[in-house]
């Protein structure tokens, strides 16, 4: 059953025939798509199309009822979230999920992988090594904070940040490791124009300079049109089409999904 992988651009993330039911509601209905390496792929669709559910299935929060998810050549279907993370996939949440009782810097330091101090006995028997690693992690966290321009709130409680700053913190968290692919769930929701522009620039820089692949859900069409290529459209749990932003924008099926379709027939 080995089909030779096509040469050239290879899909980094591949979703095949995914199905997810919640009771009688089919949130995802045989959805398939691919995300190519080193792209910023948009995932759009009307409310209730199953985009966030798709993220939750890919990252292991939900177990799919059918279908498979591949990261590179590896089948990651239904792996728990921390295992998905270890294989190089990060995600952010639609509503920021910071750790409010910790400072911004420790919110970031938390994410660093392979911390020996997370095995509690090492804190008793190998304190010097834990301390040295903490130094490295802190330095990295400070770099990341500088990149997203949050240095001025380093020691602030994460819970006290503004909505926009929390969005930046979400993005920053994914940079504490070296992810292959980052899933962003509405990175610009509730964010002002200036900040949105900055987030877009950050994403583009990361793709260009670090070769990180992005898959992002976004409702702001300006952002999608400027940033994403290609764009995947989901509607009622299915993959409706894939194309360049301008193709998608003018496709009658997409317009119908947004404006007519399910609503018109009701």
């Amino acid at each position: 059953m080995s089909t030779a992988a096509p040469q050239g651009k290879r899909p980094l993330l591949r979703v095949e025939g995914l199905v997810k039911d919640f009771g009688g509601l089919r949130a995802i209905d045989h959805c398939s798509f691919e995300v190519e390496e080193n792209t910023i792929t948009g995932l759009i669709g009307p409310n209730g199309a199953g985009k966030t559910t798709m993220f939750n299935v890919i990252t292991g929060f939900f177990r799919p009822d059918a279908g498979r998810v591949f990261l590179g050549d590896e089948d990651i279907t239904a792996l728990p979230p921390h295992e998905v993370f270890k294989r190089g996939m990060c995600r952010t949440f639609q509503i920021p999920r910071e750790h409010p009782s910790m400072s911004v810097i420790e919110n970031l330091m938390l994410v660093a992988p392979d911390q020996i101090g997370e095995k509690f006995w090492n804190c008793w028997i190998r304190p010097a090594e834990v301390r040295r690693q903490e130094e490295e992690i802190r330095a990295r966290a400070e770099e990341v904070l500088a990149f997203v321009e949050l240095t001025h709130v380093t020691e602030e409680y994460a819970g006290k940040l503004s909505g926009g700053q929390k969005k930046l913190l979400e993005l920053a968290r994914t940079l504490m490791t070296d992810p292959k692919i980052v899933l962003l769930d509405e990175p610009a929701a509730g964010v002002n124009r200036t900040l949105m522009k900055r987030i877009s620039e950050n994403i583009e820089t990361l793709r260009r300079e670090r070769g990180i692949t992005f898959l992002l859900i976004e409702h702001d069409m300006n952002m999608v049109m400027n940033l994403c290529n290609p764009v995947i459209v989901m509607s009622e749990g299915r993959d409706l089409m894939v194309g360049r932003p301008e193709e998608v924008q003018n496709d009658p099926r997409v317009l119908e999904a947004y404006l007519g379709g399910q609503y018109a027939t009701a």
Partner: peptide, 27 residues
């Protein structure tokens, strides 16, 4: 010693917000 350590940080993170701790690679 262990509550003021990376281990304690991870525990507090899980307490605060479990899903994002999971997505930060914590079992």
């Amino acid at each position: 010693r262990i509550s003021n350590s990376p281990w304690g940080r991870m525990q507090r993170a899980i307490r605060d917000e479990e899903q994002s701790a999971a997505m930060s690679g914590k079992a």
